[in-house]
Amino acid sequence: MQLNFSGLRALVTGAGKGIGRDTVKALHASGATVVAVSRTNADLVSLSKECPGIEPVCVDLGDWEATEKALGGVGPVDLLVNNAAVALLRPFLETTKEDFDRSFNVNLRSVLQVSQIVARGMINRGVPGSIVNVSSMVAHVTFPKLAVYSSTKGAMTMLTKSMAMELGPYKIRVNSVNPTVVLTAMGQKVTADSEESQKLKERHPLRKFAEVEDVVNSILFLLSDHSASTSGSGILVDAGYLAS
């Protein structure tokens, strides 16, 4: 499937590492102009060398005022990938107010804020658009020490559907991708225990975790016109986990 995003401008959050970084690289290679948002400037510097011409924006999306200042005047955006997230591993009984606030501010509130900024621009320009929220299969299943993270992703499911319903009349589609463990830096934290990691892998019918490329390909599909009638949906990239 050949995807061509020439002439379109995309914004990707959490662009410095993992899924976000590879999404930026894939969009750049497919002709899009990309605004890459990360809180780590060093990651943006190295990404700019790999993808000349991207527009780096360094901001902590957990800070509402800083985000408004950094992205309020971002200009026309046709495609949005809300990928930024934190996974603070903590048993339920040890979870703190700070854990809760940080997780919801970055993982969910920033999706609302950035999507509002981008969608208003699309509506004002009278153009269609596509928004993809990077969620997780733990929106649907439980994992130890991920009570708050899972809650942010469960809430994202309803936010995605609500956005799709309200933005649909403006020809703006909103969907999510819900991967299983992906062995990015974040994923490696979740699977640090090699024995438990192996047991978890064997619970997947395909006996594997997801590759970053698998998730990126699903994001690109949802951004593209190949999914023109898909909105309010979530693609499971879970190696069959939820079927088992």
Rank of each mutant, 00 (worst) to 15 (best):
L3T: 12
F5G: 10
S6H: 10
R9H: 09
R9Y: 01
A15D: 05
G16W: 04
K25V: 13
A26E: 12
L27K: 04
S30W: 01
G31T: 08
V35C: 05
T40M: 01
L44N: 12
V45H: 01
E55G: 00
P56I: 02
V59P: 06
V59M: 06
L61I: 10
L61R: 08
T67Q: 07
K69N: 14
K69V: 12
A70H: 11
G73N: 14
G75D: 09
V77D: 04
L80P: 01
N82S: 11
L88H: 06
L88F: 01
R90Q: 12
F92I: 13
F92G: 07
L93E: 15
L93G: 07
T96V: 08
K97D: 14
N105P: 04
L112W: 15
L112A: 07
L112H: 12
Q113N: 10
V127F: 00
G129H: 01
S130Y: 08
V132E: 06
S135L: 08
V138L: 12
V138Y: 11
V138F: 11
V141P: 03
F143T: 06
P144H: 07
Y149E: 13
S151C: 10
S151T: 13
A155D: 12
A155I: 05
A155W: 09
L159P: 11
L159D: 11
K161N: 09
S162I: 00
S162M: 10
A164I: 01
L167F: 14
G168P: 13
P169N: 09
Y170V: 05
N175D: 09
S176V: 00
S176K: 02
T184G: 05
M186A: 12
A192G: 03
K201A: 12
F209S: 15
E213C: 00
V215F: 04
V216S: 00
S224V: 13
H226M: 13
S227G: 10
S227C: 05
S231T: 15
Y241N: 00
